[in-house]
Design a protein around this nucleic acid. Sequence first.
DNA 1: GTATCATTCTAGTATTTGTTAGAATATAAA
DNA 2: TTTATATTCTAACAAATACTAGAATGATAC
Lengths: 219, 219
Amino acid sequence: MNMDNGRKIKDVLYEQVARIGKAVSSPKRLELIELLSQGEKTVDTLSREASISMKLASAHLRELRNAQLVETDRRGKNIFYRLAGKAVSDLWVNIHTLAEERLVELQMALQKIATEPNDLVPSDRETLMKMARRGEVVVLDVRPADEYLMKHLPFARSIPLDELRHRLAELPKDRPIVAYCRGPYCLMAKDAVELLRREGFSSAHLRDGVAEWEAAASR
Amino acid sequence: MNMDNGRKIKDVLYEQVARIGKAVSSPKRLELIELLSQGEKTVDTLSREASISMKLASAHLRELRNAQLVETDRRGKNIFYRLAGKAVSDLWVNIHTLAEERLVELQMALQKIATEPNDLVPSDRETLMKMARRGEVVVLDVRPADEYLMKHLPFARSIPLDELRHRLAELPKDRPIVAYCRGPYCLMAKDAVELLRREGFSSAHLRDGVAEWEAAASR
DNA sequence: GTATCATTCTAGTATTTGTTAGAATATAAA
DNA sequence: TTTATATTCTAACAAATACTAGAATGATAC
């Protein structure tokens, strides 16, 4: 028995696992996963936010469905997609974190979009939360309001990036404002920090999004 | 600024992350990663154990190197490959665990190779370790001896599968013997359990390998 | 019925990938 | 020098993939 080392059965097993790998082997599908890790979204929203046609989005989403990484749910005219579980957004965090650790090209690309160093804000999560709880910093969620509603960091306040300019009066000038958005590849928080600094606020950029925060919280 | 939503920079970022995804999108590369999660190995060993030609193994390993998931090290005539860090074997565990959770086809394939249910052995790690520490069970590593030497479970004893038949006398008949090998897709422990049961031992199969054990330990 | 949201089918194109094979090359041990 | 180990180059083939486009189809809301 198992003279052939169990070749046939092994081939089946690894081929199945590779279905997950194939699903995360495309840049656009990774972007869709990241968007979905903010919460459920329609195909229309996804295609606009990922800058692709709806047909292409549909095709990629079908691949993700084939790999059972997303689920759908029709409500009215729209079909909502969502990740099939926290394990999926954890996988996204795992992969992009590993990529950031190992790929110099990615590190360099990320440096280009980095905001100035932020002496203001402690980099570790617990201290930041402690300060947020005490009101020593303002944690600012600059994503669209619906994403904030679905999930957000503890103590975070929501001002979507495109409303920020007109709502500056809501923010204090005597305390640091820590802006975050969808994660390290999202540029909204960076833009928010630049705007806030120009307007005389002290502001810093938190690279983590909700997915990264929750993935870190569960270990 | 960022009128185009940062499209160009985003495309670069996701493309880089997709290098990791591409690396894990091939069944053979996943198998190589699993083999390497046992410890460093030569190309020759890898190609034999994955049942592919050395040239093909070489090509796949080059892909893994391009994604910076493996490192090499020449010693004498041989070139040894190893995973670039624990994060890589954690990624393997993460992916195959997610696949097992979500893909029915994989679940069914795994059922086919499952040993009979094992009332004998507690399924949670801590209890098993407690019993192993007390000597209430024998944890048996049936992988090749060099893999055992590089890394093994606490309290595990090594008897490679192909020596097991001739070394049965070393094992007790009054206590359960819990066999493990490289992980859930490795058939050696299953074979060992079947042999042991035929020979009158009480034996059970631990699906975890060293990578799964360590990944679980770090959370 | 009409408009909106989404998928599917067909079709085409360009690119990449997995695999095998033969020949050449590089490294180091014996 | 010979041998074992490993990579590279060339070539070739089949298959899969990413993307685009046009047209048709379904489902739902109004």
